[in-house]
């Protein structure tokens, strides 16, 4: 799915937990997520901590879209 979006020229970032799959599929900008059933969250945290964690991952995802990449890049 990421490739079809990128094909029309829109920069896209894939936020996912199993980054090796994303690399195999061919995403160019990848941001690692927390866990498969809750990629952008963590039920063990308080509501506020969890929101901050999610915001941080989203900010990292947005940051990756401002970085020039020439090959597949995982933004840890």
């Amino acid at each position: 799915m990421v490739k079809e979006i990128e094909r029309v020229g829109i920069p896209v970032v894939h936020v996912c937990t199993v980054t090796p799959i994303s690399l195999t599929v061919g995403a160019n900008r990848i941001v690692p997520a927390v866990a498969i059933p809750y990629p952008l969250g963590n039920p063990k945290l308080t509501g506020e901590e969890e929101f901050n964690l999610r915001k941080k991952i989203v900010e990292q995802a947005l940051f990756s879209l401002t970085e020039s990449v020439s090959e597949q890049t995982v933004f840890d």
């Binding site: 829109i10 920069p11 896209v12 970032v13 936020v15 996912c16 997520a33 990629p39």
Partner: peptide, 13 residues
Amino acid sequence: VSEGVQAVILTST
């Protein structure tokens, strides 16, 4: 594209 979206965040589980 036709809606003028310039960036996409795609999330997977």
